[in-house]
Design a protein around this nucleic acid. Sequence first.
DNA 1: TATTGACCTAAAGTTAAGTTTAGGTTATAT
DNA 2: ATATAACCTAAACTTAACTTTAGGTCAATA
Lengths: 147, 147
Amino acid sequence: MEYTIGEIAKKFNLTISQIRFYDKEGLLPEIKRVNGIRKFTDSDIETIFLIECLKKADLQLKDIKQFIEWTKEGDSSIEKRLNFFLMQREKTKAKIAAMKKALCMVEYKCWYYETAQKLGSVKALEAKKEKLTPKKIKSLLKKAHKK
Amino acid sequence: MEYTIGEIAKKFNLTISQIRFYDKEGLLPEIKRVNGIRKFTDSDIETIFLIECLKKADLQLKDIKQFIEWTKEGDSSIEKRLNFFLMQREKTKAKIAAMKKALCMVEYKCWYYETAQKLGSVKALEAKKEKLTPKKIKSLLKKAHKK
DNA sequence: TATTGACCTAAAGTTAAGTTTAGGTTATAT
DNA sequence: ATATAACCTAAACTTAACTTTAGGTCAATA
């Protein structure tokens, strides 16, 4: 099957100009053209799916582009591609871990303002904070402070 | 205790201009000045710690600023602040979940190129892919495809 | 036949989160 | 007394990832 840029945009919930931008940047190297109009194949769809996935894994477009260029080089770049993803795996894991830690602070703030609301003021909460703070929240805070 | 901007930068592993930038943007509203020179107190340090935490939780500076402004308004903004963090908690959780799913794709790619390397070529891998792909990886891929 | 809708390009503009530059003050060490 | 280090501002520049604008082609529909 072949698809137009508008169909692809809908499928992936991207804007048309985003897809043109990826194309211009060299992330979609193999797109067919008929009378100048882009025709996307299933293999292009796979590429776009991968791009969206890697973006969510916190990769930059220039790095995704690098990978795509290595792919075009064939088997000689297998090791580069492997190392690329091994490194990226650690980066993404680290980022997730950091976000989880930061989430603790957000959860603490939820507790903080829920309690302040119940007590009627921040001052009232601050006065009783030591006693009121649940152990769970205290350990969350410790987590957020840890490097 | 009071600290200079240089000391704070080291403490938080930020650049001096980053801290000046936060100040300029209104994220550090209460900094003392002596002869024009910023003097940071423990309460400023708490604010910076919070900013860094919220940044890691994927908040934008303008949202952090909004929160800081609400803080200055006093108890009348408790509900706004609570709703702010309740919403943010969901956003951050969603982001973590999306990253975890995207990580599956990165892990698949690690497996893919490890195996291609062992077999000597991508072609050899593609030929045997169906048989070789471990169940674990297959379910990872499913995860990555799922919305 | 004319106009509407989907496509195209190139180039300029936008936003976030800084960095860099250029020029200036102040405190301390030699 | 001078030079160095640490601070200051304002304004211009940077980068990533787009979006917007302006102008143009082409096919189908009223």
